[in-house]
Design a protein around this nucleic acid. Structure first.
Lengths: 117, 117
DNA sequence: CGGCATCCTTACAGATACTG
DNA sequence: CAGTATCTGTAAGGATGCCG
């Protein structure tokens, strides 16, 4: 295979990988939810609800379910009356930490860039 | 300020930053579009249209406009007949490269994780 | 407390056709 | 080629209320 073809193929592969990631993290809430959980070992439903500004419980519920299906989050029902549910990142979910950190840094830079000019 | 309050405040700040980033990169196309451009110096409209699987020209047009407003992408009209338009990342847009790379790596890992089990 | 069910409204986004 | 215009369906997502 010539170098040009090789470059094309690798590029396509990378682009597919990026799309895969974005499919998992789709919607406007996923990353925020994960970043709400990631600074703690475990985090309760209502705590996340408070952290993620603007989200409704209906959405949070739905999003958490998707994250669970994608094995990023683990759900544990704790006790009774009133019931408590803990969410924590799985080992796989914790591998998103780097991305979260980068997005955090970038967000700060971007805000300066946009409002600062 | 006590350490606990300090922790809270820093966390909230980080979460806001992540949300800022995600607001800029919202929708399911932005990151893919950027990653289509980033492997080249300049990239034409129809090239991006080809790279980003599933996107319509209507959407691509809209998304590119938003990226331009956020100063991530620069648009240049080249010649005539037929007209050609080049898109390139701005310096600021190029700072997303790290995030793209991380998302690429993570996407590959995630696919293995999900389909491999 | 942590949801789910329902209703409802928007915005997202596809298909198609058209223009400079 | 690089879009814009219009028309349309779908689904995201908010509001509210109910339940174990």
């Amino acid at each position: 295979m010539c170098p040009a073809e090789d470059f094309q193929e690798k590029r396509k592969k990378k682009m597919r990988a990026v799309q895969d990631s974005m499919d998992v993290l789709n919607g406007k809430w996923k990353i925020s939810i994960i970043s709400s959980i990631c600074y703690y070992d475990k985090r309760r439903f209502s705590d996340i609800l408070n952290d993620v500004i603007g989200i409704s419980n209906r959405m949070l519920s739905k999003e958490l379910k998707e994250l669970e299906i994608n094995q990023l989050v683990k759900r544990t029902v704790i006790g009774t009356q009133p019931i408590t549910v803990q969410y924590e990142l799985t080992e796989h979910g914790r591998t998103l930490q780097t991305i979260i950190n980068n997005l955090t840094d970038w967000g700060i830079t971007h805000r300066k860039k946009i409002v600062g000019e």
